[in-house]
């Protein structure tokens, strides 16, 4: 785990959405940190606050959402900046976006502007942050297109997004994100919209880029298989909270939290096919508007105890670098 100084630390982050139906606790007290050049995988079902956490780090929380509490500390050469405290429209956060932290999105189909050539979009991203001439930026963009494995980058430079396939577009997005050498890349389900073969290529590409660019990655997905191949450390989120956090090997070998175990149980295995049926986690994720007492997973948990419905468990150490928020692994209070 992170022995050296972390690149980014998220401490007690709470993001609430104040809507007419009530307050949604999208992110409800989340702590994690990412060391330089490491990959942190964030797993969880839809609506558990993964994407909101990512957007909070980018300063992209829009009303009615609001960062209620917590710090997002970005450790830079010039000291530590608390992103949570910056004006989301201000100049400081704009200087961080793209240069320090870049982001790629789930939908490669819609995250490129349809009316501009992809090359020009990458050039724009470069010119936003660097003092280069247009032709220098163009050369850099072509190099980037080549680096992300787009064949014939010089020709592709002049193509419009609709002329590219989904995988190519995601590569172009990655090229754009890497254009200013960010220290942290946030990937919000970057492969969810792609075919499985393309997924594998894009994941290989991201792994290669991580080495070449020395970038840390915050990788958000609901696909545990992808996490196994990408992440160094894993954080499992449920209902706006972290329920388990561990190095990737540890979590796959010894999942402690019943929710993580449930997720593992719902992956088909290649070796024992036919031998067992896939198990599904009963029920659905409760509404984030319902602020029930106790552990958020208790209504769906096969091991739920009486204490689970009264109190919410804290994230405590259950192994080397391994924490879980579950009373099963804690001395009864």
């Amino acid at each position: 785990m992170a022995a050296a100084e972390p690149l980014i630390e998220v401490k007690g982050l709470k993001v609430h959405f104040h809507t007419e139906d009530g307050v949604a606790l999208a992110v409800d007290g989340v702590d994690f940190s990412i060391a330089p050049e490491r990959t942190l995988g964030v797993v969880g079902e839809s609506g558990c606050g993964k994407s909101v956490t990512a957007r909070a780090i980018m300063g992209l929380i829009e009303p009615p959402g609001r960062i209620e509490q917590g710090e997002i500390l970005l450790h830079g050469p010039d000291g530590i900046v608390d992103i949570a405290g910056l004006d989301p429209r201000g100049a400081e956060i704009r200087d961080i976006r793209g240069t320090e932290i870049a982001m790629i999105f789930q939908e490669p189909m819609t995250s490129l502007n349809p009316v501009f050539k992809i090359g020009d979009q990458i050039v724009e991203a470069i010119l936003l942050h660097e003092n280069l001439s247009r032709s220098q930026a163009r050369e850099r963009a072509i190099d980037l297109l080549a680096a992300v494995g787009i064949p014939m980058p010089r020709q592709r430079f002049d193509h419009f997004p609709h002329q590219l396939s989904g995988g190519m577009r995601q590569r172009a997005m990655i090229a754009m994100a890497m254009s200013c050498n960010p220290r942290l890349l946030i990937a919000d389900e970057p492969t969810t919209a792609l075919d499985v073969t393309i997924q594998a290529q894009v994941l290989d590409l991201m792994n290669a880029l991580r080495r070449d660019f020395n970038t840390a990655i915050l990788f958000i997905t609901h696909d545990l298989g992808v996490i196994a191949g990408m992440a160094d450390d894993v954080v499992v989120m449920y209902l706006g909270k972290i329920v388990e956090s561990a190095p990737v090997r540890e979590i796959f070998r010894h999942p402690k939290h019943p929710y993580t175990q449930g997720l593992m149980g719902s992956i088909p295995s290649l070796t024992d096919w036919g031998a067992r049926r896939l198990t599904a986690i009963e029920g659905v994720v409760p509404s984030p508007f319902a602020h029930a007492q106790g552990c958020g997973f208790a209504p769906r948990c096969p091991h739920a105890m009486e204490v689970c419905r009264r109190r919410s468990p804290d994230l405590l150490k259950v192994g080397p670098g391994h924490t879980a928020a579950c009373f099963l692994h804690q001395a009864a209070p």
Binding site: L60, R97, E107, T110, S111, L112, E124, A125, M176
Partner: peptide
């Protein structure tokens, strides 16, 4: 549109986003 959010995430200012996106 996602490309507007992507542009914000890339560090574009509002004027740039209005004019270019």
């Amino acid at each position: 549109e996602l490309y507007v959010e992507a542009a914000i995430a890339a560090g574009s200012g509002w004027l740039h986003i209005l004019a270019r996106h």
